[in-house]
Design a protein around this nucleic acid. Structure first.
Lengths: 151, 151
DNA sequence: TGGAGATTGTTTCTTTGTAAACAAATTTTG
DNA sequence: CAAAATTTGTTTACAAAGAAACAATCTCCA
């Protein structure tokens, strides 16, 4: 009365294997796994790197704008920024023009660290999707950009 | 001395806007947002639907195999299954052949519910990526399948 | 056969992220 | 101008997901 044993690749997903949400989740998990395997001594999480990178390229950016662009909720952004501040990587300034807002800048120390980490990050990124051809990778990138409205 | 204000789409992402990990995260967040906007009365989370769907198509599947296929960790799978059990949607059976394992089956009630939810789910899924052409959508699906090793 | 190691699932603790209520400042509008 | 509504960020409480330690069972091989 027991069922025959299935191994993982014998599981029948039926139509689920064409569902974009499902595929996207698997893809992201795969990418994150590799990130943590390879991040080594940089001691950064994916979200931290992207936040620092964007601040580097947009010094004085406001927390709210940063969150909108990276799709990070306000409540969570507060925690991320405070954690970065505790590591002395960012500084906060209340602008005179709007005293509700917070403008974020990298510390000089962080500029160096982010520049170093970015060398690793973008070579890691280039190795993601090594099971695709260069053309396929390029296509996938372009389609995702259009999908999320960045193209 | 204040910085000029940037709006979200004026933020300079530099090379980050071609990073697959970043694009994939944005894409997934966008998809999840729509899921919750449209799920309505079905009262399901994305993970719950996929788990129930796979059990429907693989009755008696083992927790471990389900987790491997859906990339859900064992510790989390335990909680998911217990929550489903509490809603009387799945039943667990310890097989005689291996008393460590657990085989999962849908309750008759759940079969009906999943069949109904799947009608909604797959039409919702078809509407995801409406800003792509049909051909682009198809390409994206195929590339993701290859990327995650399902194609 | 029986003991070492692997597998399966659970429990506990921590991290990551969201939701809702709140406070302060700004904008809108009557 | 003043009250109402909105924006911005923070706090608190909670949910989702993972890591590590554990217990039970099974496999393998000396």
């Amino acid at each position: 009365m027991d069922m025959p044993i299935r191994t993982a690749d014998e599981v029948d997903l039926d139509r689920l294997n064409s569902a974009l949400g499902f595929l996207m989740r698997l893809a992201q998990l795969k990418i994150y796994e590799r990130f943590f395997e390879e991040v080594g001594e940089h001691n950064l999480k994916p979200g931290e790197f992207s936040v620092l990178w964007v601040i580097l390229h947009n010094p004085g950016i406001r927390q709210s704008v940063l969150g909108q662009r990276l799709m990070i909720k306000r409540a969570h952004m507060t925690k991320l920024i405070r954690a970065l501040e505790d590591q002395n990587l960012v500084s906060r300034k209340i602008p005179d023009g709007d005293r509700r807002a917070v403008e974020i800048t990298l510390t000089p120390e962080a500029v160096t660290r982010v520049e170093q980490a970015s060398q690793w990050f973008f070579s890691y990124e280039a190795s993601v999707g090594a099971n695709l051809t260069a053309g396929e990778r390029q296509q996938l990138t372009a389609l995702l950009q259009k999908f999320v409205g960045l193209g």
